[in-house]
Design a protein around this nucleic acid. Structure first.
Lengths: 203, 203, 203, 203
DNA sequence: GATGAATGAGTGTTCATTCAT
DNA sequence: TATGAATGAACACTCATTCAT
């Protein structure tokens, strides 16, 4: 891909994730990339097209990641904790929920998700549906294997994911996305995960 | 309060909660209220002042509600379920989380919470801190009374509130705030609450 | 009507009739009227609205004029030449074909008539259809009265109007609409009219 | 001539004749020719140069045609009708007034003729002066030969040409230049010509 | 209390053109 | 011959705000 075009996408993602699509002007992006305003229209049809390309890029990356996670969790773990928890969860957390690129996209989606019904759908999909669906399947597998009680894997997924989602919301919107804040998110999330699996093990 | 001024506030809340502060123009508000744009400046110093007054109005109402809840939960319940669950929880849900006016404010806050650090603080306060603090105190009381295990009332609060928060986010941004959608939220929330207290009782 | 608004309309008509709708910018108009560009949007929704209002104003004026002409030519003349020629024709020429305001509109229409099918229709109506129809009716009346041979009043109208139309086109686009050029048009037109009626009288 | 260059000229003529010089962008032309915008500047100095070359091409073609017509009408006809009417007129009509290429140029000229005084001159020359001059000479010859009354050959030319011009204007701007519309023009024009010569013969 | 009129600053976008490759 | 990349100038239009009445 063209160097300038990628610079524009990077700058746009940074700005959109900080202030939202409509609060960022073409001028703002160009100032960061250090090109003239008209030049941006050589690379993109219009402002919306920048947003769209950003989203599309993300969707292909995230889809790939999710399918890897799905495959990973298909091969049933021998021992519950060391394999699934340590591998699958870690991958989902570090490569998705805490990944710098994904976080920027999520912030951007969070800000813009009511600009259109389509946006809303995409937001719901990547923030709620996909993670919950993935975790639901995980619990359903664990249930089938007799590792956890087989009942209501969807509610189990909610109980598992909701606190993580809550911590993530705080992390995503604590101002700048600094490493320090991310660490707090990480600690809270893992504290919950450990407790959660421990409590399950008790039963 | 002046009649026109209240009309402006109502129209502004409706619009802000639908499209966000910056996506709503003075024109838009005036069109609804049926006054000329310049007239709005008789009642408010500027656009921001409308937003501020909306917020301030909400904070006084919500503060009052929260203090009632606090008082209610102070008087330790005799029997855990019928009193606390039915009364306090119901009050918190119906008068706050599902209240039409509060929902509009929450949507508005959700959309605008990164426009300024101050906004972020207010959002965090009313969406996370106050509810979590209130529920933490509740669990701490229940713990002191030996009704639940006394440990980590903060994490208990998170486990209790996070699913509700997750359901609420979906409800707040499912498009229009129709009664039908609210009912789905209500069902999901109460399903969780019942399960939660039931599981606690098991121990 | 508001003073500024009328000034804008006047300036717009002058400019549109000289250079055409799309070659004239809002800036151009504002420069003439001596207001800032944003001010124009207080008086008109957009650039097109200025054009539309100009056209609508013209259509009501011209419609009124045409209906007067129609009425005038209904009362059959006693003597062919002195009444119809001198009165009706004179009125049609001086108040329509050579009227300063109408000429500007005609030029404007001439330049813009292929911007849209609607424009084309309006142009055809006021440049071809209405004049030809009016003259056709005139000849048909004269024919019924036995003053001219009754045959093909439509073709008579064309023979009568076409040279006037040709002279008018030259007049409308001879550069500036100076009084000197209009005089040339007037002479050519009346030369034709006199010859035409004289030749008719011969038969 | 270079192939690409000719493609550009063809595309430009098509577009200019449909929407006018200034309403057509370099982009538009390049899209049709399927080259990049910068490439056009290898073949032409600028947009105006395309227009100029188009015009110059037309002028040499039309000049040649007119001189043929002049020569043709110089050799006095033996019999008025069969020779002059059928040959000269037919040639002038079919090869000029109704010729596809000429029509496109005429439309283009019609739209652009007030962009500059030079354009106006060219338009007048090819739409009014040359045709009228040619016909004037024709009638003057016929007069000298005693076939028509010798008087005012210029006015005769106007009487002859004006209806044709009027029909042509309608034809040129009836939307698309379809064969069906051209046929209407042809019929109207020949109806007039026949009537005209017939009436002349009566005297 | 309300409004008619105006405005400065800004927005996204188009366009003809240039120039190194 | 052709093009990728860039740009200055212009464009129509929006918006929050001001101020005299």
């Amino acid at each position: 891909m063209n160097e300038t075009k990628q610079k524009i996408l990077n700058a746009a993602l940074d700005l959109f994730s900080q202030k939202g699509f409509s609060a960022v002007s073409i001028r703002d992006i160009c100032k960061v990339v250090d090109i003239k305003e008209s030049s941006i229209y050589y690379h993109f049809k219009n402002k919306q097209a920048i947003f769209d390309e950003l989203l599309q890029q993300f969707e292909s990356i995230a889809t790939e990641l999710m399918s890897q996670l799905d495959q990973g969790s298909m091969t049933l773990p021998d021992t519950f904790e060391e394999n699934l928890l340590e591998k699958t969860c870690h991958c989902f957390f570090e490569n998705y929920l805490m990944d710098d690129y994904c976080n920027k996209i999520m912030r951007m989606l969070s800000i813009e998700h009511l600009h259109s019904e389509e946006m809303q759908k995409i937001y719901d999909e990547w923030i709620f549906d996909k993670p919950l669906h993935f975790q639901g399947k995980m619990f359903s597998l664990l249930g089938a294997a007799g590792i956890v009680k087989a009942a209501d894997s969807n509610y189990l997924a909610v109980k598992f994911y909701a606190p993580i989602f809550l911590f993530m919301q705080r992390w995503l919107f604590c101002g700048e996305l600094t490493e320090e804040c991310r660490q707090t998110f990480r600690e809270n999330a893992y504290y919950h995960v450990n407790k959660f699996f421990h409590e399950m093990g008790d039963k």
